[in-house]
Computed example of a mutant assay.
Amino acid sequence: MRADIIKHAMQYGLYLGLILGAKFFLAMTQSAFLSFFAMIMWLAIPFFIYLIVKKYRDEQLGGFISFHEGWSLSFWIIFFGGMILEVIQFVYFQFINTTYLPDILQQTTQMMDKMNLSMPHQNLDIMEKIMTHPNLYVLTDFIMYTLISGAILSLIIAAFVKRKANPYQ
């Protein structure tokens, strides 16, 4: 892997993290318009990452990039952006709105009761532990959404952005 991939990923990961942080705060508002705008931002993120990797391919690599390099750059951008988002979420849930996660847990259990749905007791205990400890919530969110979803999204982006050099030139 090229050493400058990490440098570019950190730079653009910072931008992505700030965008994700803005999206997070927009989604937390009670405004339907701002929540809708946050959803549009969420849908635009793969395109944003694609453009970054394409720009890197064209400007830094002379128009050619392997699937692995494309996947690596895309994944590391998502990784660093996700880290910034998780710090923002941790600060928000731990210090600014400390009742948000427990309230969501309570609303979820009430909705399940109204719908006559049941959950195994141990699953409910795990969910309660995660939702009452912001550090566990942030860690779970990072693993599930940043690492797993980021790896899958990076596969798709890399497939679109890869371009091999012509061996006969």
Rank of each mutant, 00 (worst) to 15 (best):
A9M: 01
A158P: 03
L124C: 10
I45H: 06
M1C: 08
P120F: 11
D58W: 00
L16G: 02
I84P: 02
K55E: 05
I6V: 15
F25R: 10
K164W: 12
S31A: 12
P167L: 07
T99M: 14
I157C: 07
S66A: 10
G13C: 01
Y137M: 06
V53H: 00
V138F: 00
I5T: 08
L105R: 06
I45D: 02
F80C: 03
I157R: 07
W42P: 00
F67C: 03
M131T: 09
Y145T: 07
Q169S: 12
I148V: 12
F64T: 15
L139S: 06
P134C: 06
L61C: 08
Q89R: 05
D141A: 08
E128G: 15
I148Q: 10
Y145W: 14
L139N: 03
A32G: 12
I130P: 00
T109A: 01
P46L: 04
K114A: 15
M127L: 12
F36Q: 14
P134K: 02
Y100R: 09
Q60T: 05
E59F: 03
V87N: 09
A27P: 00
Y12C: 00
I126Y: 10
Q94M: 10
M127R: 13
I126Q: 10
T99G: 11
I6H: 13
P102H: 04
P167N: 06
I96P: 04
